[in-house]
């Protein structure tokens, strides 16, 4: 898998005139990478992800996955939204099967795949539950299982834990990291939470706001099997503070450059 974004710009026409949301974005994600994009509100980071998903079209530039230009949404780029997007009338099992059903996979194979990924996210016990019976964190795990079951080349995540309370969020971050280590899925995640980005990713793109441009690419040189204790590490804190300074518009310390 090779995701490449070249000279990407996005302009919105509003009543007050055109607004440049993203300007000349260049970035890439490789197989098995966990990449985060951080930016303050107004940096166009959600727009960026929607463009990669094919839900919006760029004004200029192009996005390619394995050399193929993105022209619309597709199951090779599975997306996790911040709002829980489970189908409320389907059981958890049916939700996870649904992507496969849309793609024409037969019932038996669907059931097996869904059961496998429900096990991966630890929700086998809830297969027969309705989404409304689940907590926010569990709903998001179902959404992740549903996306993984469709075997995407890359999983796109738009502030997936933004609506969760602090404790659940931390649990979900650990879960996400373990899941990534186990499955090797490529992930491009958008977040405003710098701590989350440093904890999860191997590389971070830092966006400026108005218009959104890439300010810096940060390589996070931390072990991949991280646990919450790593937050106490000096290196971790340096990354976090360095990126925070970038977002504040101050000169960044040497480590981050």
């Amino acid at each position: 898998m090779h995701l490449e974004i070249n000279n990407l710009s996005k302009q919105f026409d509003t009543r007050q005139g055109p607004v440049v949301a993203l300007d000349d974005i260049n970035m890439h994600v490789e197989t098995g990478e966990f990449v985060c994009v951080v930016g303050a509100s107004g940096s166009g980071k959600s727009t960026l992800l929607r463009l990669v998903a094919g839900l919006d079209m760029p004004t200029a530039g192009e996005i390619t996955v394995d050399g193929q230009v993105v022209t619309g949404p597709g199951s090779d780029r599975g997306m996790i939204f911040q709002s829980y997007t489970l189908y409320p009338w389907m059981t958890v099992q049916k939700n996870v099967e649904f992507g496969l059903k849309l793609q024409g996979v037969g019932p038996r194979e669907r059931r097996e795949m869904a059961s496998y990924y429900l096990d991966v996210v630890g929700l086998t016990k809830f297969a027969r539950s309705l989404p409304k019976q689940l907590s926010g964190g569990m709903k998001q795990r179902v959404a992740i299982a549903r996306t993984l079951a469709s075997r995407p080349k890359i999983m796109l995540m738009d502030e997936p834990f933004g609506a969760l309370d602090v404790q659940t969020k931390e649990t979900m971050q650990q879960f996400m990291l373990d899941l990534w280590n186990r499955t090797g899925v490529s992930i491009l995640m958008i977040t405003h939470d710098v701590d989350e980005a440093v904890f999860l990713s191997q590389r971070i793109y830092v966006l400026t706001a108005h218009p959104g441009t890439i300010q810096r690419e940060v390589f996070v040189d931390l072990p991949s099997d991280r646990t919450y204790t790593i937050r106490r590490d000096r290196t971790f804190q340096d990354y976090r503070e360095g990126i925070m300074d970038l977002l504040r518009g101050k000169a960044a310390p040497a480590l981050v450059s």
Binding site: A53, S75, S83, T85, L102, Q103
Partner: peptide, 15 residues
């Protein structure tokens, strides 16, 4: 109908 529900469907490969 929430727009995100439709967009999810598209990114799951739905027409």
């Amino acid at each position: 109908v929430p727009k995100a529900l439709l967009e999810t469907t598209y990114t799951l490969g739905g027409q």
